[in-house]
Amino acid sequence: MPTIHELTIPVLTHGLGVLSGYLDKAEAHAAARGLDPAELVGARLAPDMLPLSGQIQRASDTAKASVARLTGLAAPSFPDSETTLAELKERVARTLAFLGGVGREPFDGAEARSIELRFGKFQASYSGADYVTRFMLPNFFFHVTTAHGILRHQGVEVGKLDYLGRFD
């Protein structure tokens, strides 16, 4: 059975790496076609969904906050003020730096830690293990997948292998 550390840090790091690669492709796409990159940053799949910037911000927030909830460490706070692809890429890099600084020890006992969530009307209580598998990972990958869909819909050449990322 994988540890909570193994289910979080490497998985979140991988997914954030995928997002960083998407941002590189978005930048290249905009440059090659003479598009304003701000159009990609603000692109949405539907009017009531967050734009690309919001998807990247929520993936970052999910990664940081989840590790904090599971370990008791303080997560860095980033304002949701990114308006360029470069700023979004920097946010991903800062999130990766935070995750890279968290070792295995803070996760000791995390599988049994009680995690309480309250978002507006949503309330849930999980063990650490259930939180990771039933909330954190689905939520994180919802935002990664939605970022993929937005970019694909905007004509950026991203595909399944980009989503899956490196296999090493």
Score class of each variant (00 low, 15 high):
69 R>Y: 02
134 R>G: 07
167 F>Q: 10
74 A>C: 03
116 E>M: 01
54 G>C: 10
3 T>Y: 05
127 S>I: 04
63 A>I: 09
35 L>R: 12
77 S>I: 09
22 Y>K: 04
67 V>M: 08
51 P>K: 01
24 D>G: 07
33 R>D: 06
77 S>H: 11
4 I>Q: 06
161 L>Y: 13
24 D>P: 01
98 F>G: 08
155 G>S: 04
115 I>V: 15
97 A>S: 12
87 E>C: 04
104 R>L: 06
48 D>Y: 01
145 T>C: 05
16 L>Y: 11
44 R>D: 00
126 Y>A: 06
29 H>N: 12
12 L>G: 00
10 P>R: 11
133 T>F: 11
62 T>G: 09
19 L>P: 10
76 P>M: 11
156 V>I: 11
164 L>Q: 08
120 G>A: 09
66 S>F: 04
113 R>K: 15
70 L>M: 12
132 V>L: 14
99 L>D: 08
47 P>W: 00
44 R>C: 00
149 G>N: 12
97 A>L: 05
118 R>Q: 05
17 G>T: 09
161 L>R: 15
68 A>H: 04
90 E>D: 07
20 S>D: 12
17 G>Q: 08
88 L>E: 03
10 P>S: 10
161 L>H: 10
130 D>E: 15
29 H>K: 08
12 L>D: 00
77 S>W: 11
133 T>R: 15
7 L>I: 03
118 R>D: 04
121 K>R: 12
4 I>W: 03
81 S>C: 00
